[in-house]
Lab assay of single mutants.
Amino acid sequence: SSGGSSILDRAVIEHNLLSASKLYNNITFEELGALLEIPAAKAEKIASQMITEGRMNGFIDQIDGIVHFETR
């Protein structure tokens, strides 16, 4: 797709992000992006959206560029 990722790509990214949230206590956007094979800024945006929508527990430290995952 030309304008970003398809629905399937997005679903795969979100699935992998949720998997990462179970493996890590926290991770930088750079590391997360590398893990998900997407730019760091996109990793931040998707993580932020999932947390806001209540689909993933955690919070974002924008100063240090880190996602902190919280286990249920």
Score class of each variant (00 low, 15 high):
A11R: 09
A47Y: 03
N26A: 13
Q62E: 12
I46Y: 09
F69A: 02
A43L: 09
V67Y: 02
S48W: 13
E70M: 10
G3D: 12
E70C: 12
S48N: 09
E14A: 04
T71H: 14
S48E: 11
F69T: 02
N57C: 10
Q49A: 10
E70T: 09
K22L: 09
N16D: 06
G54F: 04
I66V: 13
I27V: 07
K22E: 08
N57K: 13
D61G: 04
Q49L: 08
L18N: 04
A47V: 12
L32T: 00
Y24P: 01
E53A: 09
A40K: 08
A40H: 05
L8S: 14
Y24W: 07
F29Q: 01
L36V: 02
I7Q: 10
E53D: 10
F69S: 01
I46D: 01
L23E: 07
E44W: 14
N16Y: 12
E44C: 07
I7A: 15
N57A: 10
A41D: 13
K45Q: 15
S5V: 12
K45A: 14
I66F: 07
N16C: 06
I63K: 14
K45I: 12
E37R: 15
F29K: 02
V67I: 15
A11D: 13
E37K: 15
T28W: 01
G65H: 09
F59H: 11
D64P: 06
E53T: 08
R10N: 14
S48D: 08
D9W: 06
I46L: 09
E14C: 04
I27F: 05
L17F: 05
G4Q: 13
I27W: 05
E31R: 08
R72K: 14
Y24G: 04
A41S: 12
L32A: 01
I13C: 03
V12E: 12
P39K: 05
A20V: 15
S6H: 13
M56N: 02
D9R: 06
D9H: 06
G33E: 04
F29G: 01
S6Q: 10
G58N: 01
S48Y: 12
D61K: 04
H68I: 08
L32H: 00
D9C: 06
R55P: 02
L8M: 09
T52K: 14
G4P: 13
I60W: 02
Q49C: 05
G4Y: 04
I7S: 12
S21I: 08
D9I: 07
A40N: 04
L17C: 03
A20L: 15
M50S: 01
E31G: 07
V67K: 02
A34K: 14
K45P: 02
N16Q: 10
G58F: 02
F29P: 01
D61Q: 05
L35C: 04
A11K: 09
E53Y: 04
I46R: 00
A34W: 10
K22T: 08
L23R: 11
T71L: 09
G58I: 03
L17D: 01
K22Y: 09
I46N: 00
A20S: 05
M50Q: 01
G54D: 04
G65A: 05
R10K: 10
G65L: 05
G33D: 02
N16I: 14
A11E: 14
I60L: 05
G54V: 01
G54Y: 04
G4V: 11
E70N: 13
E53N: 06
I7H: 12
I27S: 02
A43G: 02
S1Q: 11
I13G: 02
S19C: 07
A34M: 11
I63Q: 12
D61Y: 07
N26E: 12
I38P: 00
N16P: 02
I7C: 07
V12H: 10
E70K: 11
R10D: 15
K42N: 13
F69W: 07
I51H: 01
N26W: 15
Q49Y: 07
L18Y: 07
E37F: 10
G54R: 05
A20M: 11
L35G: 00
E14L: 05
D64T: 15
A34S: 09
K42L: 15
N57Y: 10
L23M: 12
L32D: 00
D64G: 15
A34G: 06
D9F: 05
D64Y: 14
I46H: 04
A43S: 03
G65D: 03
E37C: 07
A47L: 09
G4S: 11
S5D: 14
H15P: 03
A20W: 12
A41R: 09
